[in-house]
Simulated scan of single mutants.
Amino acid sequence: MASCEASRAPVLFVSHGAPTVALDPGAFGADLASFAARLPRPRAILAVSAHWTTGSEIRITGAARNKLVYDFSGFPPEMYELRWPAPGAPDVAARAVSHLEAAGFRARLDPSRGLDHGVWVPLRIAWPQADVPVVQASLPQVPPAALVQVGAALAPLREEGVLLLFTGGVVHNLMQLRWDAPEGPAAEPWAAAFDAWVAARLDPLDVAGLARWREDAPHAALAAPTSEHLDPLLVAIGAAQHGDVPTTIHAGFTFGTLSMRSIAFLPPGGPAATTEARKEQAS
């Protein structure tokens, strides 16, 4: 049983930050790249981003070759010249549709959709060789409990070597950003309080508590005036399984209020989980 658990692919929630992280990844990029280098190479990656939302239906990219979606404007010209030619994984996409339908969700393949920046920016940092097949699933606009169920429906893919990546942001309010200070100042107290509330519920994997973030978390309306950047975290915790080891990849803020908190749920006994446990014991 332990060997089966150790071979289970991880679940990652990554706060992807501003698109310009692709040009200046900073400490976040260094931590993400270092963490990915310690993971066994996944057979494929299924990603969900805050930047592709659909109603109650879930769509999944089905093309054999991915294209990038430059879904931002007003950034330096070099942003639109970046490439990351990872292949698609039509077989994984079809399996994901099957799992979601079996769980009662409406799901279908979308052969024309590309990877948005919420997916390709962090993946370009973590797997720069672009040699791991990737599919992207849309984020349905459903209640928190249903988002958790989406993650649970996708969880069996982990046993097939498919890493599940969910990207968004724990604190995301564009109206409160300090655009003049990408590396500071220190986080605003309200942003730090909300981020800390979420973090305190990740280690024990308090699914019920996290699902009530809007009702119970401090400064929830200010930290997440719309939910689409926090929703991927709920899908991620739904995909986490009993015994998974919550591991912080990176914690910190940019632009004063933008949380870059990123976390992995790792199978017990796996290489990355063992490495992190040794680091924590030594600290």
Rank of each mutant, 00 (worst) to 15 (best):
G114N: 03
H117G: 07
A137Q: 08
L115I: 10
N173H: 12
V132W: 02
G114E: 12
R158T: 12
A152C: 08
T167D: 08
R124K: 15
R158S: 08
V92A: 09
Y70W: 12
A146G: 00
V97S: 09
G118D: 03
P144L: 02
P156S: 02
V121L: 09
G114D: 08
L157A: 04
R124V: 00
I125S: 04
F75W: 13
P128H: 04
A96I: 13
H99N: 14
F72G: 11
D71M: 08
G88K: 05
A93W: 05
L147I: 00
A155C: 12
L174S: 03
G74W: 03
M79G: 01
L100K: 08
R83V: 13
S98D: 15
L157F: 01
P133M: 09
G118L: 05
S112D: 15
N66I: 11
Q141C: 09
A145P: 07
V97G: 10
A126W: 04
R83S: 11
P85T: 09
Q129Y: 00
D116F: 01
K67R: 15
A145N: 14
V97N: 13
W84G: 03
R113Q: 13
V142D: 14
P128R: 10
Q141K: 10
A107I: 05
F75A: 12
F166Y: 13
D110F: 01
Y80Q: 07
F105M: 04
S98M: 02
L115C: 02
P87C: 07
Y80E: 06
L163M: 15
V171A: 06
L164G: 03
A96W: 06
V121G: 08
P76H: 01
A107P: 09
A102S: 14
R95I: 11
P87A: 04
H117K: 10
M79V: 10
D91K: 12
R106C: 12
L139E: 15
R158N: 05
N173I: 00
H99G: 01
Q136T: 08
R95S: 15
Q129P: 00
V171M: 06
A94I: 03
L164M: 10
P90A: 07
F72C: 13
V171K: 02
S138K: 11
A96D: 14
I125N: 02
L82N: 00
N66K: 11
P76I: 00
P77T: 03
P140S: 05
V92R: 01
Q129R: 14
P90D: 09
D116A: 11
L100N: 08
L68N: 06
L154W: 02
L174E: 10
P128G: 04
A96S: 14
A89W: 01
R106P: 00
K67F: 06
A153W: 07
F75P: 15
A94H: 11
S98V: 05
E160A: 14
G118Y: 02
K67A: 13
Q149F: 00
V119F: 00
I125C: 10
Y70E: 07
L147Y: 10
L157M: 07
D110I: 11
N66M: 12
V135I: 12
G118A: 09
S73Y: 14
P143Y: 07
V69Y: 09
G118P: 02
G169C: 10
A146T: 13
Q136Y: 05
H172T: 02
L100Q: 08
S138P: 04
